[in-house]
Design a protein around this nucleic acid. Sequence first.
DNA 1: GATGAATGAGCATTCATTCAT
DNA 2: AATGAATGAATGCTCATTCAT
Lengths: 220, 220, 220, 220
Amino acid sequence: MPAYGTPKRNRPRVSAGTLGKQRRQELVEAAYLVLADKGFEGLRTREVAKRVGINIATLHYYFPSKEALISGVVEYLLQKLREPQVSIPESATAIERLRVEFADISVRVAKSPEQLKVLTELAVRAWRDPSIARILSYLEAAWQGHLESIFRDGIKEKLFRPDLDVKTTAAAMMSQLRGLGYQRSLKASALKRVVTLISLQIERWVRPSGTHVGAAKKRT
Amino acid sequence: MPAYGTPKRNRPRVSAGTLGKQRRQELVEAAYLVLADKGFEGLRTREVAKRVGINIATLHYYFPSKEALISGVVEYLLQKLREPQVSIPESATAIERLRVEFADISVRVAKSPEQLKVLTELAVRAWRDPSIARILSYLEAAWQGHLESIFRDGIKEKLFRPDLDVKTTAAAMMSQLRGLGYQRSLKASALKRVVTLISLQIERWVRPSGTHVGAAKKRT
Amino acid sequence: MPAYGTPKRNRPRVSAGTLGKQRRQELVEAAYLVLADKGFEGLRTREVAKRVGINIATLHYYFPSKEALISGVVEYLLQKLREPQVSIPESATAIERLRVEFADISVRVAKSPEQLKVLTELAVRAWRDPSIARILSYLEAAWQGHLESIFRDGIKEKLFRPDLDVKTTAAAMMSQLRGLGYQRSLKASALKRVVTLISLQIERWVRPSGTHVGAAKKRT
Amino acid sequence: MPAYGTPKRNRPRVSAGTLGKQRRQELVEAAYLVLADKGFEGLRTREVAKRVGINIATLHYYFPSKEALISGVVEYLLQKLREPQVSIPESATAIERLRVEFADISVRVAKSPEQLKVLTELAVRAWRDPSIARILSYLEAAWQGHLESIFRDGIKEKLFRPDLDVKTTAAAMMSQLRGLGYQRSLKASALKRVVTLISLQIERWVRPSGTHVGAAKKRT
DNA sequence: GATGAATGAGCATTCATTCAT
DNA sequence: AATGAATGAATGCTCATTCAT
């Protein structure tokens, strides 16, 4: 005859139904932060619940399993990754769009390093978790497609060399940018210099042989 | 009659003390492989012991704690990372030495992917484990120094542009190569193309403005 | 806007109060079926509520506790057990009434095996739950009384041996019939033969020594 | 950095290896008693461990799962059921062997009611657990075979009617005896009378028509 | 009447670690 | 040097129950 729990109702009740979604969001965000902080190795449902200020049982009321919570986090991250960090006009040239890619990742490394951390955790886990592997593959394919379209547009605009191997260049650029994400302990200034350098390298590579890249040097 | 203390293995008894070291080595190697396979998340001392064919208690005889075993693995990885994958004559030019860097990482990605996996695991863990962070920092500093010396030599040899920002270029190249290590699901052929492209990009960047990189195109 | 308190079901509103009883009945029936299906071990209030299409909280509105719901199930079973499966005229002889007992249990085993399953579950639980033990005792006493009256009438009608130990014979017959209920995995035809045989045995036992039981052989 | 457990070594160490088997046995016996006492519904590994005086983790050292422990209990029960409760000479007649069957179950009901309780629990569980269903089927087949052989021998010895339906009679007798096992709250004396009565009934049934069963009345 | 949200207590299981032998 | 046996502290998850709305 155990004494079962009495709900602690302390927070102001928002209009019902909304609270549920809010809680789910809170939980996902908390899990996201714990994941960024301690990795999958240190991700404990109990801590997530604690951070939100609820009972584990309540967590399981919203997410039937840890796996489901993780799925929520993945979705949350994907959504964050889709939000552009740098705005750009519709009329931008390919070269400008390419620079935006670098600017975007720089902003993320500087301002939202957890995004990269969580992404790394997912990448590591993807080695043994097919469901996450699938999502990352999808993410990468989207990214690759995006870069390829920039390169193709650049060729059309005669800004890039016509013989550019679009696929390989996109893959290479992704690999190079990824390296930035995994950057550890680099001062902001040093990071900025590295990003600039890589971006110049790539610009020099994609532009037609005789083109000057001097203009780029005026960029941040 | 008691089975206690009776070793199951009848391996040729090497001189005492040597056996101990051998056991430690076996354990470290097993842990290294488990770590590559399942990550920190799935690293269980019991499995490590089992793979070596000994009792967990025995594992704890050699390594007082899991942490100590991990330290052993880190040391083991460092040693592996120090072994060059591609040989090169003393007399090699800076440009040749630079190419060897790419060749080296290509070989590792293709032949010893576990090295990169374990390195990734460590990098992830370093975010929250200062002792590992320290070791990785040391590793990176060494790598950076090595690359910088190549660039400096290249400038001296007049193969590289005299205005090359050695530090930043080294940092950038490390970041780019690191990205390769974190590469997921890229076919060997595609990977080779990406590596080649990045290496050409960097060569084009470091060489004096008018220099042809055509020769490089004949490389794998 | 709040979804609170809005019943999902749009069933024809019976006069208030009746609906309540109906709900209780639905819940009891659902619980009865779950109990037959999964036993006490697998009886979950949530599942009962789900089967009826209501919230667990609502279930607790009708039944303050799981125990109360179980009591309802017991009552429901008792009611079912009281419903005769085979009709018989008032004027029937003792031997005919005896046969009806067998026919009745045969019908239950064949057509309502859940009754026996639930009864078994209750019997098992009665070992440690005095409240259920009490009810089952009452049930058994009633059954025993019924059988005893048959035997006594049979003796009066000179159909049964005058020296019949009415009490023991009734107890024995109950025990024998109970065994049928606990029967596992017996094909319908085999079960029928077993029932027939037991009934013949008992008839041979209760009838005066010289009586023929041949007639019985023509029965199903 | 949690503080892990220090083994409490209090009991006198028996020769190693033996202790292990002893512990397993202790655990199985404890689980058997809990199962008899509280049923599957109330079977908690923690309680089993507590009864033996060890940590739950230690229980799992011996039995990887609750299921494995239950298997051990089933095996233990089977072994108990195989131990005859009443001895009988090789030369016994079929009728004597038949009576032993009743005596055997009477002894069990009186002296080892837990056997029947556990058996009932298993029977109930068998409805939804195929692995237990398989074992019980095997048990029943063995029992049925044993009874059939008694009946066949009895026919050969001309003690039983030659037209006896061996299969059905055996099945019927099993059902009747099973009912005894499920007997609740019957005083020892009443139980004895019931057993005697059923045994007489069956004897009267199996014997050739004219045979007297008076001798049987002198039995217990 | 009905429901969403919440909870305490518990459950089987895992894991690094310890220690007498 | 090696092992069987043991353990404390967690871990993900479940369940009957409660209560404001």
